[in-house]
Design a protein around this nucleic acid. Structure first.
Lengths: 192, 192, 192, 192
DNA sequence: TATGAATGAGAGTTCATTCAT
DNA sequence: TATGAATGAACTCTCATTCAT
């Protein structure tokens, strides 16, 4: 119990602080203090700051993926599936601002570059595959524009990323209606 | 002249190194060495590292704005003006990878957040105004979707930002044809 | 039995690791792991790392002393006894590289200084006495040079220590013939 | 002036503290404090603690070598040259206890092992060559025992090293007479 | 204006030891 | 007796900034 408690306290503290201040503004000592543990304790659970950061990302990504899959049906039409994924994506981030900020920090850092590099090298994760499959089928069915997958990714995700950031910073209040309009507009961007 | 020389050497060196290694991977001493000046000399021109970073951004943004304005005609149709801006935007970044990387680093950092916060607080810069005006006219003419301006920004810029990053990392080779298709797709996203 | 087992596992592990990596390269946790016990368990048998290290030395020294006494006869001539001790000494170390390395580490450290300090203060151990007696008799019989005992120690042991180190590091392969020649040369150094 | 002053203050402080407490008992902060400089200042002159330690050794070894060469004449008989070197060696260490202790610490550490390894691999330094040449000529002239050079080193140096340690620790007071007797005894050990 | 040696706070990490179980 | 998670002081090293020259 104590073990799980400490670990999750550390995770909670780390996500909070890093989401807020970025990796460089988050000394291990500060994370430890916020978690209510000693500095050395973090190293009982995570080998290094680097590994902590990557592990945090993996956990958050996992939860996001779960949320995306809820109610997702492969046999439905391309458009419907795209809207489902996009809307769930945005809703998840709106509902989980801390995780959202963390992912933002992660992607906008050398870690994110490494991640993208891996994906570009075809080392895809499950959630990449979800979209990859969708785009490929869409292109094949001539429903989606015949553009490089990476470009389709950019057209579909770029607005979502930017908007998430705006929402986090309080520049816009995203409600369900706005979320649906946004994803619909993204669909307009990629649909044929 | 010697004064201007040193200053511009510092600017050049700083952009180069920061574009490559990020703010935290760019000690002042390294910038000084690359610029061929002493460490203390930087402080004759820039009060602090923070101010250097912001000033660098201001200069780069200025050059970008100039590029956007070339051939831009307020009296042309909304769509045409949007394509002009978007295409020039992407072309500028493709042609200026160093500046592009620098802006990327800047936006993906606490500095970028400050910048956006300022803009949200209606402290707009010239290039914001360019787009602001375009979107407002487009909405009024019922050519562009009736969405909050900030959302239109996201729909129009999100893909561009994401794509620029992919290009910088070498994940996609952007030629003129692809650039035009991309911006056209962005237009599809915001047009009514 | 379980108690003895754990203790000797700890001793075995500690000698192994310390012989290999020195005192500072041998965290208690590593010793515990190698011994197959928990980190805290070591403290059931040894009050502290310091005490563990000293106790290890005592045990190894004891075994060495035993080896020296085998076949040692007080009534034989000085030279013969000296050769016996020296040769057995070297042979023991060659046959027990782990113990040899451990003693090397021990002597070349603040622990070794303390040990020597104790001996200088006339707190002799059994094996010191063995040599002490031999040298005193040798000087009395005018077979050994009339020099301070400590100098005779240095003349007799210095080469042996240095050579053991060379052997451990693989710089020389000591066989029985070479060992005998070495000790004979040491005798030349102290004999009248 | 200030530059040289600081550097030599650091060197002085480092040799003092390390001679006394060993490498692990000598934090950089303590060295800095003793030298009267800030912690970071050491890194203006030495890249790392490792490099500081090695550089210190190099400087001390250089001074020792100089002392050995004073009055050394290649054309004199083997025995005379051997006595010259050995006596100067001991006298130097007796006169420079700090340097002596430092070399002791160095040799009895992984650094020393690396050094010896290099020498074993025939990367000899000047002072090695001095002895190497002497031993080879001695063996060729049938004045010195026909043993591997490394063994001759051990026979000649082992007593000196051990004795130096004893002297440093205050176990014996080495005066010129005793030094001469010691080196003469070492000669007895290697002479044919 | 220009220098660059010097500063020192603060970073990540290690590890002997403790103690509740 | 045995555990091993937890501790926290101490370590090496970095780097933005200062200031005497």
């Amino acid at each position: 119990m104590a073990k799980l408690d400490k670990r999750s306290e550390i995770v909670r503290a780390a996500v909070q602080i890093i989401a807020d201040q970025g990796f460089h503004g988050s000394p291990m000592a500060m994370i430890a203090e916020r978690a209510g543990v000693a500095a050395g304790t973090i190293y009982c659970y995570f080998e290094s700051k680097d590994i902590l950061i990557k592990e945090l990302y993996r956990e958050i990504e996992g939860k996001l993926l779960e949320a995306l899959r809820v109610g997702y049906q492969t046999e439905r039409p391309i458009r419907e599936r795209f809207l489902h994924l996009g809307i769930n994506f945005l809703k998840y981030f709106v509902a989980h601002p801390l995780e959202s900020k963390y992912m933002e920090q992660f992607h906008n850092s050398p870690y994110g570059v490494d991640l993208r590099r891996g994906r570009f090298a075809k080392e895809f994760k499950d959630d990449d595959l979800l979209y990859l499959e969708l785009f490929e089928q869409g292109v094949a069915q001539q429903v989606i524009k015949d553009l490089p997958t990476i470009l389709l990714f950019a057209l579909a995700f770029g607005p979502v990323i930017t908007l998430t950031r705006d929402h986090i910073l309080g520049f816009i209040e995203l409600d369900d209606a706005l979320i649906e309009k946004t994803i619909a507009a993204c669909w307009d961007g990629i649909k044929r």
